[in-house]
Amino acid sequence: MRAAVLKEHGEPLSIEDVPTPDPEPHGAVVELEACGICRSDWHGWMGDWEWLDIKPQEGQILGHEPAGRVVAVGEDVTSISEGDHVAVPFNIGDGSCKQCRTGHGNNCENGMPLGFLEEVPGAFAEQLHVPFADHNAVELPSGVSSVDMAGLGCRFMTSFHALAHRADVEAGDWVAVHGCGGVGLSAVHIADALGANVIAVDLQEEKLEKASDLGATETVNADEAKDVPGAVEAITDGGAHVSVDALGIATTCQNSVLSVDKRGQHVQIGLSTQDEQGMIPLPTDAMVMNEVEFIGSLGMPPSRYDEIFRMVATGKLDPKAVVSETVALDDVNEKLSAMTDFGTVGIPVIDDF
């Protein structure tokens, strides 16, 4: 089968033939119909996250936002069958640890991030092996397309978990989203669907316009504003109830924390780059004086995807609205390179392998 294989960090992925996977007894093989190209793939391509022990090595197949059809299942798999239409979360769990058994599979004690470790080759390929498929393969509702659902592998479901489960977003709350890449635009759309008033913050006007289309009530151009937290405070008459760093650099993290009103919440979705390596200075005195909560959020438990599906069915959520374009596997290097200068808007999705 064809796959995009990492040869050297920062150098073009090699499109080549690799062995087709066979299912482990607990696994399933999915023929890919779509896979999003995420900024997390860019991080892996650039060799980030060594400090998290998830730096992809030479020979790794990247890609972690897959959707497609099951073509083979292992002998121990009971919940899915050949022909089922599924999405697969990037936070692969074993389904049996304490975290998985209590509904927190995104924090599996033996978790493996899809496409970042040798044990879990990714979805920039014609087919994908899904370990522990009873836990990790999420059957999609009838009538939805794989392209529209690809963001459920990472960006869309990550934002949903952050705002619907981790933060206390209530109708009428002000929610500020710092960084309007794929995960940030998803957060804008989801916060709007939850009834919040959304402020989108970014350097690029094109992304702010997209955020407005997705439900942002107000926008702040961080390239023009001298004081981003001050701009948020002025719009909200005191500060946001919830503020999200959807990028993961020091500036957006600090701006987000300082944008929060008294007793508000900062939610950290974005993971950091080589510049920070997981360590960002914070205004701790201001956090103490204002009783600001700092909340981390990772992925989403597979067992709760039905919450998204119910909102999609009633028209409250529309994951395809965040998809910017469809491309071929051969275009993956162009899209990864564009992310170096934040040159993509929304979610590019591979639909031709």
Rank of each mutant, 00 (worst) to 15 (best):
D245Q: 12
G105L: 01
D261T: 15
I295T: 05
E11Q: 14
Q127D: 08
L6T: 03
A162E: 03
M311E: 12
H9E: 05
K7M: 13
E218C: 07
R101T: 10
E218V: 07
D22E: 15
D285N: 14
M339K: 10
E291G: 09
G105I: 01
T252H: 10
G278Q: 10
L6R: 04
S324I: 09
S256P: 09
S81N: 14
I92E: 04
I350H: 04
C108V: 01
G270D: 07
D168E: 13
C97L: 01
E291F: 11
G95V: 02
L298N: 11
T102V: 04
A193W: 07
A125H: 01
G230F: 05
D352M: 07
N106T: 03
P89K: 01
V138R: 11
L114Q: 02
L114V: 03
K316C: 08
A72D: 14
A125E: 04
G172P: 01
V88A: 09
V323H: 04
N107H: 14
G27K: 10
G122V: 00
E334T: 14
A123F: 02
F116I: 08
L6N: 04
I61M: 05
I350G: 08
A222W: 05
H178I: 09
S96P: 05
H161F: 06
I249M: 13
D306K: 13
H189Y: 07
Q277M: 15
P283L: 10
E16A: 07
E118I: 08
G278P: 11
V201A: 08
E276R: 10
N136Y: 05
P12L: 09
T219G: 03
T158N: 04
L194C: 02
T314H: 04
Q268R: 09
T273H: 10
V288K: 11
I15P: 00
H189V: 09
G10T: 10
S259C: 09
D202C: 12
G343M: 11
V138P: 09
R101P: 00
G153E: 03
A216M: 04
L298V: 14
D76S: 11
P319R: 06
V232T: 00
G230E: 06
G122Q: 00
G122R: 01
I295A: 03
L317N: 01
I80C: 08
S272K: 07
V130K: 00
G143S: 13
I80D: 05
E65V: 00
R310V: 11
D285A: 13
P113H: 03
D148S: 14
S243T: 14
K262F: 07
K207R: 15
Q99A: 14
H161Y: 12
V29M: 05
D94M: 04
E82Y: 08
V220D: 02
L329C: 02
A250W: 09
E11H: 14
G111D: 01
W42I: 06
R155T: 11
A250C: 08
V70H: 03
I80Y: 04
A313N: 15
S40I: 08
G181P: 02
M1K: 11
D330E: 15
R39F: 15
A286G: 06
D192Y: 11
H165Y: 07
E75P: 01
D148A: 15
V201M: 13
V288Y: 13
